[in-house]
Write a protein that binds this DNA or RNA. Structure first.
Lengths: 151, 151
DNA sequence: TATTGTTATACTCTATAACTATA
DNA sequence: TATAGTTATAGAGTATAACAATA
């Protein structure tokens, strides 16, 4: 076809095919929620990964870096800086692991517990604010189906 | 509390709190699907964003870079290199926009159409392979609910 | 010999400022 | 004056290789 004949243009973009794909939809939904997360967690200076680390340390006192990496899909070299930063902020401490001299068990400080409590409340509230068009049953269904994909 | 008293350690990591959060679940699901996507699209040398660009150009002949940016949430400076690379690979062409001398309309070449056809078939098959535990109805429900979050 | 934590480093992705050509 | 496309560049995120200490 001659190039000069390609005179079509687009008024409204048709995204209907991409919207049939689970990967496209789940990524768009995740990015929408993470956007709100970033805004509301800015006052705590917590990125999603920082929040996840603090939350896992809170619910798993003595968890090791390796266990955090496995649980969150973060590579070990990239976790080092995050843990160091959280320790410097006085939110977590590294204690010797009772059964493994190589490892360090992570624990929240009192300041860390206080911050995480507020952050978890913010996160839980965000759940509902990000899904205003979902009923409680739909929200439950959505989470159940998402787990079926990645677990 | 004295540090020496923190002798707890973790056998199995408890992620139950994070799993109550929509952001966590949608991100994990998206990453799981994208991982499979990367593997299967490697033979076409297409990343998710390249696939999305080709697909949108295919279903919207004459679409502009600006429209692609808006539809995909990509910043304009970051799209330039992608479009240039796809053009150099002979998959798309830039034609003058019929109504706007600043803009360029994008079109698939014959090679681009051939490649995208195979890639879209791979993507559609991937949908089912990534969700083996979901019924057809559940898959439909999941996509409907995800759209309610980001649209 | 394998694993935990670490450093160094490279690569990719994303974001901002500024320029040009045209509207 | 505003917008489409572009360039240059900075910052954040993600990846691999290699090392010391311990299992």
């Amino acid at each position: 076809m001659d190039e000069i004949t390609k005179i079509s243009f687009v008024e409204e973009v048709d995204t209907s095919y991409l919207e049939t794909l689970m990967g496209y939809n789940s990524r768009r939904a995740a990015l929408a929620i993470i956007g709100v997360f970033l805004e509301r967690m800015a006052k705590y200076e917590l990125r999603p990964v920082d929040f996840s680390v603090l939350s896992l340390v809170s619910h798993n006192p003595g968890i090791t870096s390796r266990q955090l990496c496995n649980a969150l899909g973060v590579l070990a070299p990239n976790l080092v800086g995050m843990v160091t930063a959280l320790e410097k902020r006085g939110l977590i401490t590294r204690c010797p692991h009772p059964h493994d001299g190589r490892a360090m068990g992570l624990h929240l400080t009192e300041d860390g517990k206080t911050l995480l409590k507020a952050a978890e409340e913010t996160a839980s509230k965000l759940e509902f604010d990000c899904t205003p068009n979902l009923s409680s049953a739909e929200r439950k269904t959505l989470i159940r189906l998402l787990k079926k994909i990645y677990k």
